[in-house]
Design a protein around this nucleic acid. Structure first.
Lengths: 188, 188
DNA sequence: CGCCGAGTTGAACTGAATCAAGAAACGTGG
DNA sequence: CCACGTTTCTTGATTCAGTTCAACTCGGCG
């Protein structure tokens, strides 16, 4: 439970009591490479913290699927709108590498909201962070070329991207694997 | 104050008391066509409801600016991440048509959170709605062509878009005004 | 060993950008 | 209320980034 504790220490002033309540609700979940964390049509019952690993979010589209997001060690992840609404997911989450998650269930999170002073802060930070991530991505689609999007991607997370197949990166950027292969060749 | 009351009646069960507290904090603000609601670099002090009008969000980019969002009658709007963080805005909000807003200040909203049972629901609905809007937009950039994005745009808000100059729509879709002009010609 | 999916490379094609010029609409001042 | 200048929209010609289809290579795995 090292990473998640570090995460909170950096962000908020967590009392011993609050941390004990919160951490007692955390469930460790392990996923092997290429296994599915949330299947299409399932309910999302967890808000999860990535202790270790890389995951991808995808939606089915025509014959392939489209990768629209990644999660790395130290990120909070969830099929968030479906977690909140408790409706079946229209997308899928899977582990790209060996992954360990600390997960809080929907019911336990409600309890945390009610019994700790930090609960609402956690919820707010989660949704705020997700919103900002999507906002930045919107701007990148409007202002950057595919090549520029690729460059800012590797600039931020160069080492993390080693483990991600090119075809997923291409999809995330919004181009075909062929086009990304040529971009890599051109800039190298 | 007709539209905003209708909005809440549809969504949540608002007690007479809560509504009185909430509505007593609402400030009416009027903007003429092409006037600026939030200037670049300003602090966003309000979460606002559009009683009537059309607004656009833009960021400066090279010589023009880029329109990345619109707000219509019945929407909640704010430079939300800057409202939350109380940092200076990196984008601008302006009225495209004659606009009336009902605005709650940051300080008053904190008070509403503390004194009404509905406060947190309002905050959650606001951020949830904003997150879902951005998520849908992300998918549209990954799965749709410019023409398809234009078609789904006019499908949803055909009448509202009459008042919006083509160049803003083009920018929002992610293409040049010339390209949108040609798309319109082709599909008409 | 042979197969299969992932990545690379090539050639033809296409949607959109860019540069440029003209037409239409819009607002402002006389 | 019209005349003028400015901005917005349209249209054309050219260029370019990325798609599509196809063939080939490479590495992992049964």
């Amino acid at each position: 439970m090292i990473e998640i504790q570090k995460y909170f220490e950096k962000l908020v002033d967590l009392s011993q009591n609050d941390w004990e309540i919160f951490s007692s609700k955390l469930i460790e979940r392990n996923f092997s490479k290429n296994s599915i964390i949330i299947k299409l049509g399932q309910k999302e019952n967890y808000l999860s913290f990535i202790e270790k690993g890389v995951i991808r979010f995808s939606i089915p589209h025509e014959f392939n699927d489209i990768t629209f997001d990644f999660g790395f060690t130290g990120d909070f992840i969830s099929a968030y709108q479906y977690f909140l609404s408790q409706q079946p997911c229209t997308y899928q989450i899977e582990a790209i590498s060996e992954t360990t998650l600390w997960s809080v269930s929907f019911a336990d999170l409600q309890e945390i909201y009610n019994t700790t002073t930090i609960g609402n802060t956690i919820g707010r930070l989660a949704s705020e962070g997700l919103f900002i991530k999507k906002s930045n991505r919107e701007i990148s689609f409007l202002t950057q070329s595919a090549e520029e999007r690729y460059l800012s991607l590797i600039e931020n997370d160069a080492h993390l991207l080693q483990s991600i197949p090119l075809k997923y990166l291409a999809s995330y950027i919004g181009i075909t694997p062929q086009a990304l292969s040529r971009i890599r060749k051109r800039i190298s």
